[in-house]
Simulated assay, not measured.
Amino acid sequence: MNAHVPSGPDELTPEWLSRALGAEVTSVSWERVGSGQIGACYRLTLKGEEKVPARLVAKMASEDPTTRAFLASAYRTEVLFYRDVVPTVAVRTPRCHYQAIADDNSAFVLLLEDMAPAEQGDQLAGCTPQQAAAAVTNLAGLHGPRWCDKTLTEIPWLSVVTEDDAAVLTEVFAPAVDAFVQRFTGRLSDEDIDTLRRVADRIAAWAVARPERFGLVHGDYRLDNLLFAPPPQQTVTAVDWQTLSIGHPVRDLSFFLGTAMDPAERSAHERALVETYHTALTGYGVDDYDLQSCWEDYRFGALQGPLITVLGCAVGTPTERGDRMFLAMTRRSCAAIRELGSLELI
């Protein structure tokens, strides 16, 4: 049984933090940071014993009770990622000082390293090819160490898509596409609407295809979930691990490049960026996977873009920025699907 898990920042008292950190905290103040769709983050300023960090980021459940109940399994996944998976991979993440989750998984708290002065990526603005290269190199640190690792299937809280799951996905995704198109009437091109509907028709077959290559999949590896260190480091730290699963790893690469860059910029640089990722992957001992296979999997994986975008829109709390973000991601990822001929590979 877990002890009481705070449900909001007001409950992160000096007394509670002292117990969590194993050191006396004498005062704490907080401010909300980030623009999470399914949770909330707060920057804590702490005072106390010498080993108490001056600042931490507390990640907690959504303030909305209905959202909390709906996303309980996602909260569990993120907490257990920091507890069980982080030590086994090389992807750069914030250091986790403390983690806890309620017995019903509807409330959780992660006390994470404050990565400032690193800055959050901007999904609307996109990124430079240099930032993209740093991001895909870090992504290989998630995939490479446990590439085709059969022990992943022994982790009970990590999901794998089955044939039955794929059938359910079709039942969920097709209506979600209809709702998405209706919600953004007049703001989607006819070409993109057609692509979304064609994706919905093939999503079940896509979800279970190419099972011979599998590994950890972040599932939502996009700019808003990445922190970029200032020059000269240019390192990238990945956050938001609530969608971690087992699947074809290269879907993360397709999703990132397909949503992070405008189509012309992506088209000009994607070959080189896929090669950058592949080179990093081989550095983790993935030596039976050639560059051409990686490129074909990258083309195939592009359906991850509309899948995550449409479903994310369906469950996220509506905001003006969020709507603009979903539209930008849809426009970019649908263009990638058409240009790469992704649907023809299914």
Rank of each mutant, 00 (worst) to 15 (best):
N2P: 11
H4M: 10
S7I: 05
G8K: 09
P9G: 12
P14N: 14
L21N: 07
E24T: 14
E24H: 10
T26D: 13
S29D: 14
S29G: 14
W30F: 15
R32F: 00
V33N: 03
G36Q: 03
G36T: 03
Q37D: 08
G39M: 01
Y42M: 02
E49T: 14
K51G: 12
P53D: 10
P53V: 07
P53A: 10
P53W: 04
L56A: 11
A58W: 03
K59H: 07
A61T: 03
A61R: 00
S62E: 03
E63W: 00
D64R: 04
D64Q: 07
P65A: 10
Y75V: 00
V79K: 01
L80K: 07
F81P: 06
R83N: 09
V85P: 06
T88F: 12
V89T: 15
T93Y: 13
R95V: 12
C96S: 15
I101D: 08
I101K: 03
N105E: 11
A107H: 14
V109T: 09
V109H: 06
L111S: 10
M115Q: 13
M115L: 15
A118G: 15
L124K: 00
L124E: 04
L124Q: 07
C127E: 01
Q131S: 02
A133H: 01
A134Q: 02
A134R: 00
T137N: 06
N138K: 00
L142Q: 09
P145M: 10
P145L: 05
R146T: 11
T153D: 06
I155W: 03
F173A: 12
P175H: 11
A176D: 13
Q182D: 13
R183S: 14
F184S: 07
S189E: 10
D192G: 02
T195S: 04
R198V: 04
R198P: 08
I203G: 10
A204H: 07
A204C: 08
P211K: 05
H218E: 04
D220Y: 00
D220K: 05
R222I: 02
R222K: 15
D224K: 02
L227I: 06
F228H: 03
F228M: 09
Q233K: 12
Q233E: 15
T235I: 00
D240K: 03
D240F: 05
W241R: 02
Q242M: 03
T243F: 10
I246M: 11
G247Q: 05
G247K: 01
P249M: 07
P249I: 03
P249T: 07
D252V: 02
L257N: 06
G258Q: 05
T259I: 02
M261Q: 14
M261R: 09
A264P: 03
A268G: 12
A268V: 03
L273C: 14
V274S: 08
V274R: 01
T276R: 14
T279Q: 13
A280K: 09
L281F: 09
G285L: 10
D287A: 14
S293L: 08
C294D: 08
V310D: 06
G312T: 13
V315E: 13
G316N: 15
G316Q: 12
T317C: 12
R321A: 14
M325K: 05
F326Q: 11
M329Q: 13
M329N: 09
S333V: 02
I337N: 10
I337T: 15
S342L: 08
E344I: 09
